[in-house]
Simulated scan of single mutants.
Amino acid sequence: MDLTDSPEEAEFRAQLRAWLARTLPGLPPKPPPDDWPARRAYDLDWQRTLHDAGYAGLHWPVDAGGHGATPTRHLIFLEETERAGAPYVGANFVGLLHAGPTIAAEGTPEQRARWLPPVLRGEEVWCQGFSEPGAGSDLASLRTRARRDGDHYVVSGSKLWTSHAEVADWCELLVRTDPGAPKHRGITWLAMPMDAPGVTVRPLRTLAGSHEFAEVFLDEVRVPVANRVGAENDGWRVTLVTLSFERGTAFAGEVVACRRLLRELARAARADGRWDDTPLRRRLGRLNAEFRALWRLTQWNVSEAERTGGAPGAGGSVFKLRYSHARQELFDAAAEILGPDSLDLDRPWALERLSSLSYTIAAGTSQIQQNIVAERILGLPKGR
């Protein structure tokens, strides 16, 4: 794997930097973190800006509406936009990083044509309807049922921790279509319109005061069979494609953000005289090495996906496992440097520290990632 820019990549990086320098000063102020309708509008506006400039869906296949660029070029895009302080995907998170890539990989031509262009153009928002009250880490234990009724599935059940449900147009939904099958073999992946009759959304307020998650209740919701991605009862395999994207490259921009925060912490430590504290300086140095290694691991993962022509594999679990813990360690260090200010919820770092506590659970708990690494990379037998 070559970690240096080719001449073409260096030119792309320079052009992107110049475009960001021209564009970012003209953006409106970012809405408050708890105003998700306003944040949806802001995030969609930014996505339209990227689309109009030719930067939307860089690494998506051309027949999915993208530009067919290499994953390496996509990482350059993430690195430069984060360094410049550009908006991240926000409410577009599920559509751009989970559902969209899954539909691009597994959907029919008709499904690609219907759902992918609106995501790239900043017209529609997706949410993720995977977890349930009794099916979180053990996702295959989900109980939301879907029975076939002609050209529709009739869905009943509930979902929990549904990201951006209150502002979403579509939901990537996992349902059980064969209750008698082994739990991994009776699941189907559906695209559900959030305005369908029988869908009720109840926002959940987090410890940080935000409500980007919700409970979703489904009461005899009719979803067209044409909205099924993959075959009936083959949804677990499709789900693994979704999760590989979620664990493989979805956090790449956040690694760059953590490296930027680490530099800010070092400046804060110098400003208040804490830089002479040898243990603290050693701690920040080790974290710098951690995040540099995580960035290289991300590059390796996408290079492997590029070489094999597939989605990110089990290496994504290695990344997710270490990143979630490194992020918590970073914000513990921030609390040490900021002192009482780290408890001020009006400060972005305080909110980020609270949200960092969820990263060992979100996108698959650390225990699940350890099992994946043990079984699929180390070849160890499954636990009993």
Rank of each mutant, 00 (worst) to 15 (best):
T200W: 12
T102Q: 09
A191I: 15
S137R: 11
R222C: 05
V94R: 06
R296C: 14
R274N: 04
E212Y: 15
A191L: 13
G310A: 12
F291R: 00
F331K: 10
V94F: 03
L280F: 04
A314Q: 07
P312I: 14
M192A: 07
T360L: 07
P37A: 12
A305Q: 01
D138M: 14
L240T: 14
R121Y: 10
L330K: 01
D195I: 03
A104N: 05
A191W: 02
Q328F: 10
P133E: 02
E232M: 09
W349T: 09
G129L: 02
L142V: 11
R247G: 01
P109N: 08
T177M: 01
R286Y: 06
E79T: 07
L139G: 07
R327A: 15
L378S: 07
P224K: 13
R353M: 14
L261H: 05
D332Q: 12
L262R: 05
W161F: 15
R263C: 11
E172K: 00
S356R: 09
R145S: 12
L75C: 13
E9P: 05
G54N: 13
D234Y: 05
Q370V: 14
A335G: 13
I187E: 03
R22H: 11
E352P: 01
H211P: 10
F331M: 05
W170I: 09
W126A: 04
G129T: 02
G186P: 02
A305I: 05
I103W: 13
L174W: 00
R247H: 10
L351A: 07
I337A: 00
G57M: 12
L218C: 03
S324K: 06
W295Y: 00
L354G: 00
A21N: 01
L142N: 10
M1T: 00
R73K: 12
L240V: 06
V256E: 03
L297D: 14
R205W: 08
L294P: 03
A165F: 01
L24R: 00
D138A: 14
R147C: 13
T108H: 08
G68D: 11
R145N: 10
Y359Q: 10
G150Q: 02
A21V: 09
F251H: 06
A113V: 12
P29Y: 02
Y55M: 02
F319R: 00
F291G: 01
V201P: 04
E336P: 14
S137Q: 08
A250T: 08
P32I: 04
E304A: 11
P28M: 12
G364L: 03
R322W: 14
S356P: 09
R176S: 06
F217G: 00
A64I: 05
T365P: 00
T23Y: 06
Q367P: 06
S356C: 04
P25R: 13
S158W: 04
A334L: 03
P87I: 10
R263T: 07
D43T: 01
L265T: 12
N227I: 07
E11I: 10
G95R: 01
P224Q: 08
V241L: 03
L330N: 06
L44I: 08
P71V: 00
E82H: 13
G248S: 13
A266R: 15
A146K: 01
F93Q: 11
F12Y: 09
D149V: 07
A41W: 04
